[in-house]
């Protein structure tokens, strides 16, 4: 997609920081830290799991007389979601887990815990915070 820059002077900006919606990266006490919102991760996980997410288009507009637009949305798969989390974790020394209550005790909790454990085993620091 084309997204050309303006012709006017570009303001000074630091090196772009690559972040994702459930991760907030900041530098704290000299360490690179990731903040992981379990709530936001849960929402994306939920969408990724849902059957409808895998369907690009439904046939709703083809129903005779249907009023509006079809529904359909594309989400990365669950695997892609966790691949991304791992990529993010590879670049930091500390992980702060926010809103841990969202982890629950099901498959989501196991999937996230596996990544956190792996991070921890690599020597990463894991901290939990109360829900923001």
């Amino acid at each position: 997609m084309t997204f050309r820059q303006l012709t006017v002077a570009e303001p000074e900006r630091a090196e772009p920081v690559s972040r994702r919606d459930f991760l907030t990266m900041r530098v704290s006490e000299g360490r690179r830290v990731l903040e992981l919102s379990c709530e936001r991760l849960f929402m994306r996980y939920h969408d990724a799991c849902s059957e409808a997410a895998q369907r690009q288009v439904s046939n709703h507009e083809d129903v005779p007389g249907a009023a509006d637009v079809p529904l359909g949305f594309a989400m990365p798969s669950v695997d892609a979601l966790f691949d991304e989390l791992e990529r993010q974790l590879a670049g930091v020394e500390e992980l702060r887990v926010l809103e841990r209550g969202w982890l629950g005790s099901g498959a989501f909790a196991r999937d996230v815990a596996a990544r956190i454990d792996a991070f921890s085993e690599r020597g990463g620091i894991v901290a939990s915070e109360a829900a923001a």
């Binding site: 709530e39 936001r40 929402m43 939920h46 969408d47 849902s50 409808a52 709703h60 637009v69």
Partner: peptide, 13 residues
Amino acid sequence: DRCPYSVGESGSR
């Protein structure tokens, strides 16, 4: 970011 997918408010759905 804080809610799951929704069809939105159209088509009386």
